Structures are given as C-alpha cells and as structure tokens.
Amino acid sequence: MPKYWLALFIPLIIACEHNSYDTGDGRYSYLQADIVDAHAATKGQIDYCHTDKGDLLKLSPHAKADWATTPDSTYRALLYYGKVTDHTTEAIQIARVPVLKSVPTARIDTIFTDPLKLESAWMSTNRRYLNLQLGLKTGRQDGVDNKQVVSVMHDSTSATGTSMPTIYLQLYHRQNGVPEYYTVRQYVNIPLDDIKETTQIRLTVNTYNGIVTRSFVIDR
C-alpha cells in the first residue's frame, strides 16, 4: 500500500453502551455526543476538546486514549460526555475518528467500490470536515484475519464559465473477503481545510441499495 494512502482498517466499533436506567442527576442523565477536535496533553491523555460549533470542553479527569500517541497534538474523535459546568465535563467514552485525505484515482492500481451503508453525511458547522457515518458489514471466520479498507478518492475538479468549482469524490471500500454477518457503525472525516474558495463537493458512494451521490457547498 503506497505511503500516501490513508486508509481505515476495519473492524472498529464506535459505540457507547449503557445498560442501566438513570433518573435524576445520575452519571448518564445528561449524556450527549459530539465529533470533536481532541487535544492530547501527554501521550494517551486527552485534556480538552473543541466541538465543531466551537465550544470548549475541559475533561476532568483527563480521558484515556491509547491512540493519542503524540503529546500536544490534536485528533478527531467521537466524545460521549456528561453534564457541562463552566466548560468542564467528564468523558464517558472517547474513540478516534479516522481522517481520510483523498487520493487521486490515477495513483490507485486497483479501485474497489464494494457496497456499504451510508447512514449519514453532513458538513461540520465550522466547514472544516465532511463527516460520514458508515455501516460496514463484518464478522469473524476461523482461519481468516482479513481487514476491510476504506478511503476516499478524487477524480477531478471542474468549473464551467462563472460557476463554482466542483470536486468529485468517491468512497473507496474493499471488503477484502471479510464475512458480512452483521453491521457495525463507523465514523470517518474528510478534511476540507485545503479548499480556499467557495466550492461544491459531489461525493459518490456505492451502497447496498445502489449508487448514492451527495452534494455539499463549502462557503469561503
């Protein structure tokens, strides 16, 4: 796999489970979730996050995150957290959200667009990311340790006359022989900071119900 290829190896389940029922001011009474920019104070320790709306969330105690390997760095993450008081909250669970920078299709030897579920796609409030919620079919089989691969390809950029530029993206998905017994949810982000002018994005995904295309406009 080329070094410029940013891929997601599956399965990775992002979930928050709570089996008991809380009333009043219990730990889970104010449970909420956001995709955030998470800051690592030290290796494996997240001390604060910024939501896509710009809200600061200080974590007390610091959240443990084995994937945060570089101190004083920022990662995309899905944060489940409780009641917020003076910008401070407790992290119930935090999981990394892969950031997939698009790869030119010309650099890919074999293109795979195996079907998956596109459960949701939306632009972050700060216009810095395109957030995707995917449903990936997976399972275990004795003697098989294959991994699925998910990434993003870009075909071209076009502009006609005075119309805004359009970037054509396509989701790359290689099932790679992984059994399709059940579906897991996975969030991924596509970064948009390199886009400096008002641009339309057209994202194409091969789903189990056929080809789906979603369009987004980035205002700059």
Rank of each mutant, 00 (worst) to 15 (best):
P61I: 10
H62S: 07
A63E: 05
A63L: 08
K64A: 13
K64G: 10
K64E: 11
K64L: 11
A65K: 10
A65E: 07
D66A: 14
D66G: 05
W67E: 07
A68K: 00
T69Q: 02
P71T: 09
D72N: 13
S73F: 09
S73Q: 02
T74L: 06
Y75W: 07
A77C: 08
A77T: 05
L78Q: 12
L79S: 03
L79V: 10
L79G: 01
Y80S: 03
Y81V: 09
Y81S: 04
G82N: 10
K83A: 09
V84N: 00
T85I: 08
T85Q: 09
D86S: 11
T89G: 04
T89H: 02
E90W: 03
Q93R: 15
Q93K: 15
Q93I: 10
I94K: 02
I94V: 14
A95G: 07
A95Q: 12
R96I: 13
R96Y: 06
R96W: 03
V97W: 03
P98M: 08
P98H: 05
P98Y: 05
P98T: 03
V99N: 02
L100N: 05
S102M: 11
S102R: 14
S102W: 12
P104K: 05
T105K: 14
R107N: 13
T113P: 01
D114Q: 13
D114E: 08
P115N: 07
P115C: 11
L116K: 11
L116M: 15
K117E: 12
L118W: 13
L118R: 10
L118H: 11
E119R: 15
E119L: 13
E119I: 14
S120T: 13
A121W: 03
A121N: 02
A121E: 07
A121H: 02
W122N: 07
W122V: 08
W122A: 11
S124E: 08
N126R: 02
L130K: 03
L130S: 05
N131K: 14
L134Q: 10
G135Y: 06
G135V: 08
K137T: 05
K137Q: 10
T138W: 05
